[in-house]
Computed example of a mutant assay.
Amino acid sequence: MPVISAPQAFNEDDLYVDLEKIFEYPLFLKCEGFNFAGSIKLKAALEMVETAERDGQLTPDSVLVESSSGNLGVALSMIAANKGYQFVCVTDSRCNPATRKMMEALGSQVHVITEPDPAGGLLGARIEHVKALCARDERYVWLNQYTNPSNSTAHYQHTAPAIARQFPDLDVLFIGAGTTGTLMGCARYFRTWHRPVHVVAIDTIGSVTFGGTPGHRTIPGLGTSIRPPLLDESYIDDVVHVEEADTIRTCHRLARHGFLFGGSTGTIVSGAMTWLARHKKQNLTATAIAPDLGERYLETIYQPTRTHHLRDDDDLSPQTPTTTPQAA
């Protein structure tokens, strides 16, 4: 049995759910929520912190600060608590209440931004707040998940090879687009693999990541109001945009079969099923990455006041998001 002394030392990396019995098309869902941080963000957080330590950016007196919609903030809170750093997470009003409470329970400070920046939205306002904190106190160290190469390196070195080991005949990989760290790390890895892998990015309607029209978004995780600096679209084959209502429908459909996943997973599965339905290719081996589980969304996605109109079985089927082919 594994015995650990640091919470970040444990991460279940080889658990998949076969979704064919729940949905019409076969899809293997890689579950990334089984670690003490509860999400895939543990990989990026640990890589960024350890790189900053090796480079001498972090000292015992440093105060970590990061902008996060939630999951990275929890991962950094856990790592900071274990390593003895102070940590300030700058989030916004869309952050799940349970996520904020988890960060505070781990000893972190949480600054909640409520007023969006006129140009950059809530994300832009969060980043400006982080910059102001760093300008006021030289002890603050901003890891900056939006530009930090370690964000994608973590997935190039760990997530993608783990998928490759389990699925040597992989044809299609579906990945959600947030900071695009997971997306770019995996896409770069499979670009040089022994066989072609069709990489499909899943985004939310209202996100500007791939040039869409900015719109109101309430579910944290995927989507941005500022184009991610890490993104290189030449590695992406298709993009599927998903309505938030379809995210909720898909989460509830999974929950009715005993799988409680988070909002990002609902978006990714909804987009993946739409892509598979449109292409209808036989004998495809398809995998998607589920970033987290659903406990943190009980007061949002699974709140009856938000989902009463989605209770009928017919309403729990994903609708028709938009698919945008990308240049190779």
Rank of each mutant, 00 (worst) to 15 (best):
Y156D: 12
Y156R: 13
Q157A: 14
H158G: 00
H158L: 06
T159P: 03
T159R: 05
A160H: 04
A160Y: 04
P161N: 08
I163S: 11
I163F: 10
I163Q: 10
I163T: 13
A164E: 13
A164W: 00
R165C: 13
Q166K: 15
Q166W: 00
Q166E: 14
F167I: 14
P168D: 13
D169K: 15
D169Q: 15
D169W: 10
D169P: 03
L170H: 11
D171T: 08
D171M: 09
V172L: 09
V172G: 00
L173E: 04
L173V: 05
L173I: 05
L173G: 03
F174K: 01
I175W: 00
G176L: 07
G178P: 07
G178Y: 05
G178R: 04
T179E: 09
T180A: 05
G181I: 11
G181A: 09
G181T: 10
T182S: 13
T182E: 01
G185C: 10
C186N: 07
C186D: 01
C186G: 02
A187N: 09
A187E: 13
R188F: 06
R188M: 14
Y189R: 07
Y189C: 12
Y189A: 12
R191I: 11
R191M: 13
R191T: 14
R191G: 10
T192F: 10
T192L: 03
W193A: 14
R195H: 15
R195Y: 10
P196S: 04
P196G: 05
V197H: 02
V197Q: 03
H198P: 03
V199N: 01
V199T: 09
V200I: 11
V200M: 09
A201F: 05
A201V: 03
A201Y: 04
S207F: 08
S207D: 08
S207Y: 07
V208I: 11
T209N: 05
T209F: 02
T209L: 02
F210M: 06
G211N: 07
G212N: 06
